[in-house]
Amino acid sequence: MRNVLSIARRECRAYFTSAIGYVVMAAFIAFTGLIFFLIVSQPQAVASMDGVFRNLAILLVMLLPLLTMRLLAGERSGDQGIGTIELLLTSPITEWELVLGKFVGSLLYIFALLAVSLIYPFTLGRIGDPDLGTIFAGYVGLLFFCGYCLAFGLFLSSLTNSQIVAAISSIVGLLVIWLSKFLGEVGGGKLGWLAWWSFMDHHEDFWRGLITFSDCAWYLSFIFFFLFAAKQMIASSRWR
């Protein structure tokens, strides 16, 4: 546990000692700010975050892989140094501690990101009468959604030595998972099961203010699966 926190702290701090953390945060603030303004400046605007959450997903699918690409691929070759994975793997830490530390580190950064966005519900509260419960559920859903993207990106980062490859494959992979929802809808009965595999169906419930056990379990199991896969990838370098 101590090791997980040490690694998480180092990873989170690394976002702020390199440009990537600031670039992602700037993009996030600019995009959400614009969307928020466009929504609330409409004549019959409703005091809800629904529009922001709905449009935020596509941005996060593009941005979060940029945060996760360096986590493991960058330890093999990256701007922090070359081959630092050798230091980590010869330290007395377990592969789980390494993967969890990396995941928690990037999640901490997401907390900072989402904390900044709290300005929007706060503004809504000043100019209207928003349903705080729905907004709370939306944020819980956003956290799960980010966790899913981060775990997925972390797994792909464990597969390659190249950060670019990790980032692009994560973005494409997440888009495919997203679009499988529409594939399921178009394909009808035969392909209907595809919709379940997409995160969008599960994400939408949260925007509507629903926190259901099945959605939480769905996200948690996929996050666990991706982290487990990343852990196995790292451990496999020691298998005979």
Partner: peptide, 17 residues
């Protein structure tokens, strides 16, 4: 690993720290 200190050939360091 607990009892071992290792300096790899390419001297891996975190250059941002």
């Amino acid at each position: 690993r607990r009892r071992l200190g290792y300096l790899p050939e390419n001297v891996p360091l975190y250059l941002d720290l």
